Simulated scan of single mutants.
Amino acid sequence: MANVTFKGNPVTLLGNEVKVGEKAPAFTVLANDLSEVTLEDSKGKVRLISVVPSIDTGVCEQQTRRFNEEAATLDNVQVLTVSVDLPFAQKRWCAAEGIENLQTLSDHRDLSFGKNYGVAIEELRLLARSIFVVDSSDTIVHVEYVPEVTTHPDYDAALEAARKAK
């Protein structure tokens, strides 16, 4: 399992760590209108999945803004941001910040994504900051479990993986 800390303190991640080359695990999360969204819904596209603990915090805001800007330049790539924030909070935040090029998804209901991708933080009921790139045939082609939840991911590596994926 990935060794992850939150503000320097080790945390327990629930679920199994996913690795490059594996089939992407299925998940069910909620869109801002409370409809269910699954991995299957974006089949045939490359998915860049940006995972943040809470959209209303500094690093999470910056990460989401960065991928929103980059999403406009990516062909056949769907950018998804997953957190445990309520769908209503995600919708309000996106409207206030002008986020239009990516989809925010809530894993608050049952941590389906968090547990299936090994990023649910047991002690906090938040998701650990991470990035996953899934190709159009549902294979994981890039994984980053950010070692310290309060720091930024490697944006360039994730974007390069998304651009190269088919």
Rank of each mutant, 00 (worst) to 15 (best):
A2C: 09
A2Y: 10
A2F: 10
N3A: 14
V4I: 15
V4P: 00
F6L: 14
F6I: 12
K7N: 05
G8S: 09
G8I: 14
G8L: 12
N9W: 07
G15L: 00
V20T: 15
V20R: 06
V20W: 04
E22G: 11
E22L: 14
A26V: 02
A26D: 13
F27N: 04
F27G: 06
T28G: 11
V29D: 12
A31D: 15
D33K: 15
D33S: 15
S35P: 09
E36A: 00
V37H: 07
V37L: 12
T38M: 14
K45P: 08
K45C: 06
C60H: 08
C60M: 08
E61W: 05
Q62E: 11
Q62C: 06
Q62H: 07
R65A: 01
R65E: 00
R66V: 11
N68K: 05
V77R: 00
V77K: 01
V77E: 02
Q78H: 08
T81C: 09
V82C: 05
V84C: 04
V84D: 04
D85M: 08
L86M: 09
P87T: 08
F88T: 09
K91C: 08
W93R: 08
C94N: 09
A96Q: 03
E97Q: 13
I99D: 02
L102H: 13
Q103S: 15
Q103G: 06
T104E: 04
L105K: 02
S106I: 10
S106K: 10
H108T: 11
L111H: 10
S112G: 13
S112E: 02
S112H: 12
S112T: 01
G114T: 00
K115A: 02
Y117S: 13
A120T: 05
E122T: 00
E123D: 10
R125N: 14
L126E: 07
L127M: 08
L127G: 09
R129Q: 14
V133N: 06
V134G: 04
D135W: 12
S136M: 01
H142I: 00
V143N: 11
V143H: 11
E144K: 08
V146G: 07
V149I: 15
H152K: 03
D156C: 05
D156W: 01
A157I: 01
A158F: 04
L159W: 06
L159T: 07
A161S: 10
A162Q: 08
R163A: 04
